[in-house]
Computed example of a mutant assay.
Amino acid sequence: MFTGIVEELGTVAAVLDQGDAIRLTVRAVTALDGTQLGDSISVNGCCLTVAAIDHDDLGSTWTADVMQETLEMTSLLGVQPGDGVNLERAMTADKRLGGHLVQGHVDGVGTVVRRSPSEHWDVVEVSLPRELAKYVVPKGSICVDGVSLTVVNVGPDSFTVSLIPETLTRTTLGSRAPGDRVNLETDVIARHVEKLITAYLPGASA
């Protein structure tokens, strides 16, 4: 479980193609503080398991195995060495929940449609798969590339968010351009509520 508060902007150090999977190596500092093999780290909102930790003259790296299904369902498909990635370690029970409850399970991939810079923030519009639109509401929460954000407006196939300078500086969202793909995770509470009430709706099977 995560909070959507990015701890560090890491850098992809290597991508090893294994045919039906990749081994993704990421250079990091904060994300490796206290981290052990088997721990979970969110990479652009995708929960990955630490399979190796290494140290070299440039610092420290960690490696995760990313299977084909994950690649097909997320924007990690096509990631290249040198790319920046948002990193967050799994939350602990005594940690402040500064964002919202995030599982690190990507629901779908959106695309940056447009961004409108202003003096103190950017308004960014992101495309939204229609099947996910019902879970997104104005002033509600959504996770974009691992970043917990508050929704401004919602349409049938897109939504907008406002990015403050801190978010623009400390995450990949500061450099995402129209056409770039981003991982989306909707509010898990909304999805659970839908499942619970569906059984009581007319026409539901016993």
Rank of each mutant, 00 (worst) to 15 (best):
A93E: 10
E166W: 04
I164E: 08
V6G: 04
T171G: 02
S127T: 06
A177K: 15
S175R: 15
D122L: 07
S42M: 05
S175G: 15
G104F: 04
F2G: 14
D33I: 01
G203Y: 02
V6K: 14
L173E: 10
T30I: 09
L37G: 07
L149P: 10
G78A: 05
I41V: 12
A28G: 07
G38K: 08
T25G: 01
L32N: 05
E185G: 09
P81L: 04
K95G: 07
D122H: 10
S40T: 03
E69D: 09
L87Q: 13
T49Y: 01
V109K: 15
H55S: 11
T3I: 02
I197D: 14
V161G: 12
D39R: 03
A90M: 03
S162V: 11
A190S: 14
M67L: 06
V126D: 11
V144M: 08
R170F: 01
N153Q: 13
V50S: 07
L77I: 02
G174V: 00
G84H: 08
D57V: 10
V154C: 06
A204H: 03
T35K: 06
E88P: 13
A21H: 12
V113I: 03
V113Q: 09
L184H: 02
W121D: 14
N153A: 11
L76Y: 00
R115M: 01
A199M: 13
S42Y: 00
L9K: 14
T169Y: 13
S60H: 13
S162Y: 03
L24A: 01
L196Y: 07
T92M: 10
D145L: 03
V12H: 11
T169V: 02
E166T: 06
S60A: 13
S118P: 13
T198N: 14
V102Y: 09
Q80W: 02
E194P: 10
D187A: 04
C46S: 04
A52M: 05
V109L: 04
D107T: 09
A28N: 08
S42Q: 03
A204K: 11
I189Y: 02
S60E: 02
L97H: 05
V6W: 08
P178C: 01
W121N: 14
A204V: 09
V26A: 04
A206Y: 13
K195H: 03
A204I: 07
P165L: 00
H105W: 00
Q103Y: 01
P156L: 05
E8Y: 03
M1F: 02
L196H: 07
I22S: 06
L163F: 00
T63Q: 08
G4R: 12
G78H: 02
C47V: 05
C47S: 03
T160R: 12
I5A: 12
G82D: 04
G140Y: 08
T92C: 14
Y200F: 14
V85W: 05
I197S: 10
A133K: 15
M67K: 09
D57M: 10
L184N: 00
T198C: 10
Q36E: 15
D94I: 06
K139H: 00
T11K: 14
L149E: 08
L58S: 15
T61F: 03
D33F: 00
G59L: 05
G10I: 04
A51N: 14
G82F: 05
A28S: 06
C46L: 03
T49G: 06
G59V: 00
T11S: 10
V12Q: 06
L196F: 01
E194S: 02
L97G: 10
A31M: 06
H55V: 12
I53Y: 05
S141H: 08
